[in-house]
Design a protein around this nucleic acid. Structure first.
Lengths: 228, 228
DNA sequence: GTCATAGTTATCGTATACGATTTCGTACTT
DNA sequence: AAGTACGAAATCGTATACGATAACTATGAC
């Protein structure tokens, strides 16, 4: 756990990968880790040289990242790590609130008490992170928390959408969007409340609303701050 | 309206497109129109020859289609139009019900009476299609109906997810999944009910549930039939 | 007759090469 | 001094080429 890049295709374990896949994983990792920040110019020839192979597989990798929204690829101009745009952030968060809400509701009936306990442990760690002020770890743990809940999610498509959203948010990590004061504490509290709802066997609709609101609240906190 | 391939990037108007984009549009169109049916083997060299250019842009196009789920691309084996799998159908429909539900709820407050009237007209055409038994046109009109409702959707990301779902369904059009007896009539009725909800200014949650159920019912009808 | 194995063919994956386009810098004009 | 026009450098887009891999076919053994 606590990996950086999220998604089924992120790191296929073997060495028997195509260079195209390797390039995809490498560039994606750099974006998600923050080595390539938004606006960063992705020069194909340079990346190819860095990785030690030609531009063709790199192009394919970039195209794939483009399809996932992590990269903007403009004809005859080049590729850049995509956007800080507040509007884009709003879109992403709103979409995430919907797909996370659905994923949580669909997963809830399938979560056993062991998973609940693990999720609770992760949430405790998050609480500790707050004291030591470790936002990077906090974010990673936050993904872990929800990943535990989604472990038995019956719909991989929805899970994939969640992961895409997370990666997209990760790509803009160091920007102004994250970490509204006080929001993190609230987030930990909401996690606990969500766990109790799941434990109590609350109906799907209630759980979905709670999970959705959990994400939406972070967005609201940002919007409220941005307004000032 | 009543286009075949749906999505923002489907048909960039000019001739000044990259061959990669042309290839993408061409192959996508063939899939969505049903010329390439599921399982169809996409031989890169052959497609390249058909279109009159080399394999490199075709590969990029295929990669993009892969990212959208329309194509399965296996290393050293090749690309095929992706799947009829009932499970896949279930995933897609379930995901669609969620994103369409959200898109409808988000759009509802922004829909004016003119759009409502247009949607209603489309729905009337659908009713007529039922009498002449024109399922292809019915499906196209169905997309038109919802497209009218989504015209002012404030979140393009969600709209994009809707379009991807539609394209995915279109790619399996001629299979056993569509057109459960009686479902089409019900669908037309549900459209009218949905319009009345929107007109009456019902709250977001009610509209979302109705829109979600509209898609879910089609899935349920299929599942019930498949069980027999 | 069926299975295993070797050889052939088809197709993929990637490198290299080069024309096309954009961008940047410099010199020239007003 | 500011703006424009030209030229050079950087970078992209695509074609071609070829080694690598998998699928297919045919031949032989049991």
């Amino acid at each position: 756990m606590t990996e950086t890049a999220v998604g089924s295709t992120a790191v296929e374990n073997a060495a028997a990968q195509s260079k195209s896949q390797q390039a995809y994983a490498a560039v994606k990792a750099r974006i998600v880790e923050g080595a390539y920040t938004p606006g960063y110019r992705l020069v194909l020839a340079k990346i190819a040289e860095d990785l030690g192979f030609s531009v063709v597989p790199v192009r394919e990798a970039i195209r794939r990242l483009e399809a996932e929204g992590l990269v903007k690829f403009e004809r005859n101009v080049g590729a850049t790590v995509s956007g800080i745009d507040p509007t884009e952030y709003l879109y992403t968060m709103q979409t995430l609130s919907i797909v996370e809400g659905a994923a949580t509701a669909l997963s809830a009936p399938l979560i056993d008490s062991v998973s609940i306990a693990r999720a609770r442990a992760v949430n405790e760690e998050m609480r500790e992170c707050l004291e030591h002020f470790d936002p990077v770890r906090f974010t990673a743990l936050n993904q872990d928390f929800h990943s535990v809940l989604f472990e038995h999610c019956p719909n991989p498509h929805i899970l994939d959408l969640v992961h895409r959203g997370w990666n997209r948010l990760a790509s803009i990590r160091s920007s102004t969007f994250r970490f509204v004061p006080g929001r993190a504490q609230e987030s930990v509290r909401e996690h606990e409340a969500l766990l109790q709802l799941i434990e109590s066997g609350a109906d799907a609709d209630t759980i979905e609303k709670a999970a959705r609101q959990h994400r939406a609240s972070t967005l609201d906190a940002y919007l409220a701050q941005a307004k000032q």
